[in-house]
Write a protein that binds this DNA or RNA. Structure first.
Lengths: 193, 193
DNA sequence: TTAATTTTGGAACGTTCATTTCAAATAAAA
DNA sequence: TTTTATTTGAAATGAACGTTCCAAAATTAA
């Protein structure tokens, strides 16, 4: 019966995500989004309710897309320690790919919006929890494989890595020199050995 | 001859900085600034030209105020390694002081505005350079005192610490649990020993 | 006390903001 | 082909934005 949605929703989300990633939530206007997608205002509001919801959907898609990309790369790792190093390699690749790196959308979002918007804060805490669990499992396996030292618990090292990754993503915004990024990565990894 | 500026410029900058720190540049309106300072719009524009300049002045004041505060604390350090640990203690104190920590104004600014505004980007690169020099000297002294290992150069460790500090400040936005923050700090410091 | 100079208060500027409205175009099902 | 549901286009909404304007108040030097 109805006329069906003609645009590619995934593509639109990707286009909008690029704008949000580049300018942040507050500096992005609906006009920017209209321009980036080629869609009409009405279509956007019809399909995504409002700017806030659209941003939340971009965040969620970004998270799962990043996680999938990470999983793909990590599946090639020979062991857990190698996997942790590969996480940083993925980010290094991302940072030097762009002339001006935009950092991590989620880290930027935390910096811009945490504690101001409950649905965003909920997302951020959930993301943090997922990240910590993921890293803890990785460290735990590495410790069982005796590739990672047991000076600290897997929980503590996960927290350390979580914090280090955020710093790494922030640093990449201004520093895009590969040797420097590799050096930071190696120093972080060294701690675990 | 003239009527002289009646308000306390330092106080106004502090009040405005608090708003910018809380909401970020783009989400802060001139009305917010009027409300926070109690000044009239005209007075603000008379004294600070525009929002952008006002923000830049807040950034600079924030930087020097933070550096002064850090210097004060670090002067009580018994050695260079202790001084590095004290940096993190200053941040931990800052993080748990506020119910909802806002992170570092400069880190947040990098996340929101880097590569979009040349005067901001200039400030950020200058700040980064200052930070790295400061940390490199600290590490270098620590290595001479044989308190910090020489597995990596002082430059490399400075870069590592710089990245770690940014991550630490980001992490503190969502995590305000002192033991967790202490754990991250200790893991970072451990790398140097 | 007067003159000179600046800060104020408050309104107004034109623009841009996110969002809404609604008729016209569209397309699948009947 | 007609019906039905939905997407579109384009304009309009009112509120908020950063900034400007100007007369009135204020203050100090002469």
């Amino acid at each position: 019966m109805p006329k069906v949605e003609t645009f590619n929703r995934d593509l639109v989300i990707e286009q909008v995500t690029n704008v949000f990633h580049d300018k942040g939530f507050n500096a992005t206007s609906m006009q920017d989004i209209v321009d980036a997608t080629g869609l009409n205002r009405s279509s956007i509001y019809n399909s995504f309710e409002n700017k806030h919801n659209l941003f939340l959907e971009c965040l969620k898609t970004y998270k799962s897309r990043s996680n999938n990309h990470l999983s793909d790369k990590l599946s090639t790792a020979s062991n857990s320690l190698d996997a942790i190093a590969l996480i940083f390699d993925v980010y290094i690749e991302e940072i030097i790919k762009n002339v001006h790196d935009k950092g991590c959308l989620i880290v930027n979002c935390a910096s811009e919006m945490a504690n101001h918007d409950v649905s965003i804060t909920d997302f951020l805490f959930k993301n943090q929890s997922d990240m910590l669990t993921f890293l803890e499992n990785l460290v735990s396996k590495g410790q069982k494989e005796q590739l990672i030292n047991t000076n600290k618990s897997s929980k503590e090292y996960a927290l350390y890595l979580y914090s280090s990754i955020q710093g790494f993503r922030m640093t990449g915004i201004l520093i895009s020199d590969k040797p420097e990024l590799e050096s930071i990565k190696n120093t972080i990894i060294q701690t675990l050995i």
